[in-house]
Amino acid sequence: MREVLVIAGKDLRNLFMSPLFYSIAGLCTIAWTLVYFLGLQEFAEASSMNAMQGAGEGASLHFVVFTRHISLVNLVMIFAVSAMSMRLFTEEKRNQTMALLLTSPVSSTQITLGKFLAGLLAAWALIAVSFFYPASLRVFTAFDWGPLISSYIGLLLLTGCYVAVGMLASSLTESTVLSVIMSLIFNVMLWFIGALSDASSDSNVSKVFDHLNVGSHFVNFIKGSVSLAGVTFFVSVIVLMTFLTQRVVESNRWR
């Protein structure tokens, strides 16, 4: 465990010391702020109209403002995580520091877990920033924490998948550009696997694809239900990708 933390600590430190992280974080917050502000304004106008017409409260804050924010955070994270995780392994290979890791008394599994942890914590730092937007509204108005929290649990798990995918991509190549592109393609594919359920006429096959649908699992989290199936699905994706990365790292010794 100490080895995992040592590697994760080094990677996180180097990431937080680099301009890359702050440029990504800066761009993310600009996008989030603009859209969140517009959404909030729209919602305020709509609900004051409703109130004037005596039609009650109208749409819920969660589904109009928060859901929009969360889907944007998700979209942005696909890019942000791909850009952050590209360095995890490609940098080591380009710096020739992979030799240091491979000749240290640590296993490939520990190296992979350390890297994953670093990527995960960096991504979660951004998620934490995005949480301030809806949370700050609590100062002005009361809303139900439940669905917001469950959406964020979903978001944390989902970004975990992005990190694991990005890490796998970076372990496959020495080029950071290629790593980002692969990571983006894989992450977008993750969202479209579910769509294959329509392509199959066999109902059993389409059921399988339905279960692989990232979107439908994530929607449950947004609706406020943390289902075992959803958590299992995301954790499985993370474990699978991490396992594959571990195999790639291990294979470095055999080449």
Binding site: S18, N95, Q96, A99, L100, S104, P105
Partner: peptide
């Protein structure tokens, strides 16, 4: 590996 110190052809250093 605990017993070995290794200097590869290119020193494995992190520039940052």
């Amino acid at each position: 590996k605990k017993r070995i110190g290794y200097l590869p052809e290119n020193p494995p250093v992190y520039g940052e």
